[in-house]
């Protein structure tokens, strides 16, 4: 089965006055059909820029400087802006963290959804409205017909996020990129959204890239997980494997920093230090200054190792006895 998305050696750099900021640096991964991939990392690790790069949404001074993004076999980076517009929103959709920023506050939700339908399909307004209504119903918004005439501010945060998901679903895309869509939501509402997303992805056979800093959310949702640090994917593999037997010290560091990892009341085990500034990343392994396992060899670039469906970039990976 051919993958929906294949990213090869993607590098997105920002040419700032203070130098070249390598937000995404030689990133490669694939997303299979119907696969849910979690992309995790701390703020500034480049996970959102990876998502933006796929959709061609990187603005100057940022630029995709290298790589290929193959979507169903076609390289998105070689496409004309016109051709890209037929894909963006139709074949690949995106859901952002804050729907209040992405929904137009002066247009009713119905108007915005009808626009989205008609941007790609030549259908009558009435039919576009009917499709919008159905999409709202799908994501669990009560009385969708009336809600089409509501404005974004008349929805609660969770409901707005459902509207954003409904818009993303309008054209039944092959791939949805969701950038921290539940981060701003309460636990019970987040759980409702995760439930709906999982159901809808399975129902329509969509692939999903779920960008999040919350390992717990990704653990519950995704099939595969990719961990980003300082612009690179440092570890990737099946969720169960990566979270129970992490190979990269950064992954294990993240896992043991959560409060649940130590008995109640005992000191937590944070990763020492801070993430390096993206303008002045150390050569070699960017994590080596914070890593307890680092040695001199870490000053050189660690190669990507692939073993048993697991990829990681580390000279001193954790070893787990083969079961």
């Amino acid at each position: 089965m051919t993958p929906v998305l294949e990213v090869r050696n993607l590098s997105t750099h920002f040419m700032t006055r203070r130098g070249v900021l390598k937000a995404v640096d030689d990133v490669s991964f694939t997303v299979g059909q119907r696969e849910i991939v979690g992309l995790v990392g701390e703020s500034g690790s480049g996970k959102s820029i990876t998502g933006f790069s796929i959709l061609g949404l990187v603005d100057p001074p940022g630029r995709v400087v290298n790589g290929q993004i193959l979507f169903n076999g076609d390289d998105l980076l070689k496409m004309s802006p016109t051709a890209m517009r037929t894909i963006r929103g139709k074949r690949i959709a995106m859901i952002f963290q804050d729907p209040m920023m992405t929904l137009n506050p002066v247009l009713s939700v119905g108007t915005q959804m009808i626009e989205t339908v008609q941007a790609h399909d030549r259908v009558s307004r009435a039919e576009a409205r009917a499709r919008s209504r159905d999409a709202l119903g799908l994501v669990g918004i009560p009385s969708p017909e009336e809600r089409l005439d509501s404005y974004p501010h008349q929805f609660s945060g969770g409901m707005r996020q459902r509207v954003a998901i409904a818009i993303a679903l309008l054209h039944r895309p092959d791939l949805i990129i969701a950038d921290e869509p539940t981060t701003a939501l309460d636990v019970t509402i987040q759980s409702q959204i995760l439930f709906e997303i999982k159901r809808l992805a399975a129902e329509f056979g969509m692939a999903l890239i779920w960008i999040s800093h919350d390992l717990g959310v990704v653990a519950a949702l995704a099939d595969r997980i990719m961990v980003m640090y300082a612009g690179r994917i440092v570890e990737a593999g099946q969720v169960d494997g990566v979270l129970s037997e992490p190979r990269h010290p950064y992954t294990s560091g993240l896992l043991s920093a959560v409060p649940a990892a130590v008995p109640r009341g005992e000191p937590l085990r944070p990763i020492p230090g801070f993430a390096p500034s993206p303008l002045s990343r150390p050569s070699g392994c960017a994590f080596r200054d914070r890593c307890a396992r680092a040695t001199d060899i870490c000053a050189t670039e660690p190669m990507l190792e692939i073993a048993a469906g697991r990829e990681f970039r580390c000279f001193h990976p954790h070893l787990w006895s083969a079961a």
Binding site: L215, P267, P270
Partner: peptide, 11 residues
């Protein structure tokens, strides 16, 4: 805060 910074502050 990010999870590892959060752990530092909680400590």
């Amino acid at each position: 805060l990010d999870v590892s910074i959060q752990a530092q502050i909680l400590n």
